[in-house]
């Protein structure tokens, strides 16, 4: 989604949102990532204005204090940006790909099932389809991408063919580099 994303061309508008909307976004994020509860005040202080950056295709990026925090697409689930995910690594379920897949993930490819089931890969918990997941890599500490499951983890293991995780955001993509001024 962010493979070719440049703030200059793709941002269609940014606006400070009403405090009621701000509260709504905040509660939605907390509902999705309950582990963030103790830290939310640090991430998005109630007093500071929240800026919603609107991009093409109904993509919204939540920005507080010039820092991009979360984004969502078509009113779907909120995803943290990878910078935030690196800071709070355990807020979302994780899958791990093998070493061979890293190269392709870093150029924006969707993750195929074999990359998730082979030896270096790992799926610890059972997750239903459409779950946002963090993508880790074999031998690495930090997440390298964010995605959405296109199959349940059960199916990934049993079918083992085709796209398992649709890639949403990965390190070194447009959003990773994006700097947006308020």
């Amino acid at each position: 989604m962010f493979k070719k994303f440049s703030p200059k061309d793709d941002v269609s508008g940014k606006s400070k949102v009403k405090s009621s909307v701000q509260r709504g976004i905040r509660s939605k994020i907390l509902e999705q990532y309950p582990a963030l509860n103790p830290y939310i005040e640090e991430l998005m202080p109630k007093k500071d204005p929240l800026i919603l950056v609107k991009c093409h295709d109904r993509l919204n990026v939540v920005m507080v204090n010039d820092q991009l925090l979360f984004f969502n697409h078509h009113d779907g689930p909120y995803f943290p940006t990878l910078q935030i995910l690196h800071k709070f690594p355990d807020i979302m379920p994780q899958v791990q790909v093998d070493r061979g897949a890293i190269k392709f993930v870093l150029s924006g490819a969707n993750i195929m099932c074999p990359g998730l089931t082979s030896k270096g890969a790992r799926i610890d918990v059972d997750l239903p389809v459409d779950t946002p997941v963090a993508v880790l890599a074999e031998g690495k500490e930090h997440a390298l991408a964010l995605g959405e499951l296109k199959m349940s983890t059960q199916d990934i293991k049993s079918i083992n063919k085709g796209v398992g995780v649709e890639l949403v955001h990965f390190i070194n993509d447009g959003l990773w580099h994006a700097k947006i001024e308020a």
Binding site: P34, A35, L36, N37, P38, Y39, E41, H86, K87, F88, P89, D90, I91
Partner: peptide
């Protein structure tokens, strides 16, 4: 209050 109820929420490491 938030802090008092923190035990109910899953915890996460914080890497800085």
């Amino acid at each position: 209050e938030d802090n008092a109820a923190a035990q109910e929420w899953p915890s996460t490491r914080v890497l800085t």
